[in-house]
């Protein structure tokens, strides 16, 4: 689709301060995607979604069975953009301070020093987040929303960019604490990796027999460029028809489900659409961007009362029924 039409080079000549030209960001996204796909076989769409989430200042929830490469995906993206990467394995006995950090008494200086927790990273992987008790979950989710951490009355800003990629274990449901609905809402996207196809898996096996490609993965850009790219994404124009379209989609889900999409969800949808527009080389969002992002951005925010219909089905219906502006 992107190849079929020429990218206009207009209105990108004088980007705002700190922002990059649209074409630069577009190229950057392609480079990251290519780089990551060296490690992750298949799942091109998921990779794109994670990249647009990072650019759109969102967080990602990966809902999957173990061993499909969730951690590898997060790590390869972090490496590609040359950002700090930290990983928290959530367990039932994990404490909030294990995530945020703790004040430690320094015997030499005879003062308390803050030992920052794993949350202080550019890209944080929260593995099996639903295994930790709600209190610990809340610590991470609070950091996601505020982009800052408060311990013992001191508030500390988290680094920029800050993106949480949390995974959720879909098996063993009796040993997990389900994420509260309100907290799921804080993730911009919920993605599924799923198993690779036999061909993909064969290729994956071929790559990982020797050295794991993640070890030789190099960065294609740096942290500053990523920050600038995020700046660019936020300047993408969202015209009134597109806003109306998003609002109508949300309204549809509210009318056809027990709990529909929250306004926070609609905001996330438009941010994702902005990022999506940039990856397609446009400085304006079109309904197609919204349509591409809606299934992953809206589905997990919808609570249905029926057993046979889930949020995904409601969003599919909405996309089918709501007329495009």
């Amino acid at each position: 689709m992107t190849d079929a039409n020429p990218t206009p080079e207009r209105s990108t000549d004088s980007p705002a301060d700190g922002a990059l030209r649209i074409s630069t960001v577009e190229r950057l996204c392609e480079e990251i995607e290519t780089n990551v796909s060296n490690v992750i076989v298949g799942h091109d769409e998921v990779i794109e979604h994670v990249i647009t989430a990072v650019l759109g200042r969102g967080h990602v929830l990966l809902d999957d069975v173990p061993g499909v490469g969730k951690t590898m995906l997060a790590r390869s993206i972090a490496t590609s953009v040359d950002c700090t990467f930290s990983r928290v394995q959530f367990t039932p006995d994990l404490l909030p301070s294990d995530v945020t950090g703790v004040n430690v008494f320094n015997q030499k200086t005879r003062e308390f020093e803050f030992q920052s927790g794993p949350v202080f990273g550019n890209i944080v992987l929260g593995d099996e987040i639903n295994r930790a008790p709600p209190k610990t979950q809340a610590a991470l989710l609070e950091a996601m929303e505020e982009e800052q951490v408060t311990t013992d009355g001191t508030t500390r800003d988290l680094p920029t960019p800050f993106t949480v990629i949390a995974t959720q274990n879909a098996v063993e449901p009796n040993r997990t604490y389900d994420l509260p609905f309100a907290e799921v809402d804080r993730f911009m996207k919920k993605l599924h990796l799923g198993y690779p196809s036999p061909d993909e898996e064969a290729e994956l096996l071929g790559r990982t027999v020797g050295d794991h490609p993640i070890d030789s993965l190099e960065a294609v850009t740096d942290r500053e460029t990523l920050v600038a790219a995020r700046e660019t994404v936020s300047t993408v124009q969202v015209a009134a028809p597109v806003r109306t379209y998003a609002a109508r989609l949300a309204a549809y889900t509210r009318e056809h489900a027990h709990i529909g999409v929250s306004p926070r969800g609609t905001i996330s949808l438009l941010r994702a659409a902005q990022a999506r527009a940039v990856t397609n080389g446009r400085d304006y969002a079109i309904p197609d961007d919204v349509q591409t992002e809606a299934p992953v951005v809206l589905s997990h925010r919808i609570k249905t009362d029926g057993r046979d219909r889930d949020g995904t089905a409601v969003v599919e219906d909405a996309l089918e029924r709501v007329p495009v502006e």
Partner: peptide
């Protein structure tokens, strides 16, 4: 047709 679509999108959603 692609060019027409492009211009339509810019006129409607872009600047």
């Amino acid at each position: 047709v692609w060019h027409v679509l492009e211009c339509y999108e810019r006129a409607t959603y872009g600047d």
